[in-house]
Design a protein around this nucleic acid. Structure first.
Lengths: 339, 339
DNA sequence: TTGTACGCGTTATCAA
DNA sequence: TTGATAACGCGTACAA
């Protein structure tokens, strides 16, 4: 079987020939510059006629650009698909990047080996900038990026954010406070929290908001810490909570998936929701509407987060970045039946 | 703010200078060829010392390759994230592509405008090959790809598959037959199907399998057709079925999401599962374990599908494709409590 | 086994 | 306003 030959593509040279001008002039209509009206129309016709499309490789070579932005997800492979927001964030980022004719290359950093590989990639100049999702504290990748002075934006800030790098996110503290207050307003007295992912800003901030809302009534023994934002950790956390305080009548779960797991445990324990105990989640993911009863939760604009992150990087790449940096997007609370 | 200057990168020239040889020799150790042991070690040391990484743009320019494979999803944006398999398929494909040092560029084709844009992209030689997911009949993109003789692989075959293009998929007919038989074996007499996405091979084949399993007992009036594989269509389909045949005691839902919707309607109608009616799904997605009761369903190896698809394209790109073409992967049935 | 020189398709610089 | 020409970094004949 013969190696398929790449399709023949028209070049600037061909366009110039077809229009009866030099390559320089063609280039000026492509990339702006002084050019006479007659030449312009002739060239535009020629471009359409020969079906010219610029060759990215050649262009990038001379411009010393890759026209690519890295999307770094610092997350175990398995969790990538479970995360209800990451997909929408990627989609949002990809939207504005592709409009700006940039390629989004997604790199998941799971193991140490990944760190090395991605490090080489970044150093190699394969991307003009990076969007970093769910970075943890003291991340080697973060250090590398500041070292390289690579244009970048965080989605959610790592605890040790070097503020030369902007971020886009939501107010986790405020959102958590608001939704916890709802629990208080509906008369719950013994309120616990299943706190997940405390090594991330989102996790830590949600706990902070919970504590703020409770004020004097905050009781550390009613906080069950679990590592991840998922269903099975919701199950574990709820068991702990129920064990410590059988009279519990309110629960703030750090995510909808966690809440769904908690709900299952409550059902097994014979507690009714929202009768015996009220429960609220976070994310407004598809979980929230599937549970019985549906969850009251915090909606975060994941797609917009992605879009804003992409814009922030592109601004830096283009060198047209004024003073204003990080962006905090608004959340909204969705009331359903669980509390 | 100054435009961030791209990091200075070492070139073959630098390596040659550092090793005291010519660029040609350096090239030979990079891309294979005769080279003396002494020269090789000297050059390898030099490469490490100056931190040389090949420049993709330059390499692609001269090789006339893009080192990119398009991942085309012919699906509405909104459904992309809902589909339980597509994410895993992408991950699987990306895995083998990145090992082969190829970029995966994902292109979602939703509207007619997308078709045009993607068409330009393919014609422009921006990808060396393509993986196409959920193509429908008479797709203009498919036609373009055969025209261009672009190396490609389908995931699931479109009804009008031009057999010059290989595909990787599962045996939807056989899997559907098997799981429907289970319903029969457990003594169900009036079995209906909620058939979704009949304009796709997967949807049509599952209906075929259902019909085969039932044989003489097949009753067309017990098939509710719905357009999409999602929860809300499961709700609609189940209502139709219950309306047409109140004595129904078995249901094959075309996907787990559909089954979940159907389950909700059954609950509202006061039917117990699996007591009054047995129900089975398809996909073994996260839905299957979240429903009450958990679903019996067909597991399909989504990740492997992606891996195989990528390998099939790469083989064609490299021109090292023997005779064997399409691949059918095995499914397995997962028995839970719903039937 | 090694070195030299040309071409890949663009952009950018400089004269004209 | 336009045209010629030199990079950009690499692969590859061809000659040595």
């Amino acid at each position: 079987m013969p190696k398929p030959s790449p399709p023949k593509r028209a070049t600037v040279h061909d366009v110039a020939a077809a229009a009866g001008v030099s390559r320089g002039t063609v280039n000026r209509v492509l990339n702006g510059g002084y050019v006479s009206a007659t030449a312009r129309t002739a060239i535009e016709a020629a471009i359409a006629k020969v079906g010219y499309v610029p060759n990215t490789a050649a262009r990038n070579l001379v411009r010393r650009r890759s026209q690519a932005i890295g999307f770094l997800a610092m997350e175990p492979h398995s969790l990538l698909l479970e995360d209800p927001n990451i997909g929408a964030i990627m989609l949002g980022a990809n939207e504005v990047l592709s409009v700006a004719d940039h390629q989004m290359v997604s790199l998941v950093v799971d193991s140490y080996r990944d760190t090395e590989r991605v490090g080489r990639y970044l150093r190699g100049g394969f991307v003009d900038g990076a969007i970093i999702v769910s970075a943890r504290a003291h991340d080697p990748i973060t250090r590398l990026i500041t070292q390289l002075r690579l244009p970048a934006t965080f989605v959610g800030h790592p605890p040790d954010l070097h503020h030369s790098i902007p971020f886009v996110g939501i107010d986790n503290v405020g959102s958590a406070r608001t939704i916890t207050q709802r629990l208080l307003q509906t008369g719950r007295r013994r309120i616990g929290m299943i706190a997940a992912a405390l090594d991330r800003d989102s996790g830590a901030d949600r706990l902070t908001g919970f504590r703020q809302a409770l004020g004097d009534r905050f009781d550390p023994s009613l906080v069950a810490e679990v590592p991840l934002y998922d269903y099975s950790n919701g199950v574990k956390g709820m068991r702990v909570l129920l064990d410590r305080e059988p009279l519990l009548d309110g629960v703030f779960a750090a995510s909808d998936a966690v809440a769904a797991g908690a709900l299952e445990v409550l059902r097994e324990a014979g507690r009714t929701v929202p009768g015996d105990v009220g429960i609220v989640g976070f994310d407004n993911s598809s979980w929230a509407m599937r549970t019985q009863p549906p969850l009251s939760t915090v909606h975060q604009p994941a797609r917009e987060i992605g879009q804003n992150a992409a814009e922030l990087v592109l601004n830096q790449v283009r060198g047209t970045e004024p003073a204003a940096r990080s962006i905090l997007l608004d959340t909204s609370v969705v009331w359903r039946d669980s509390a």
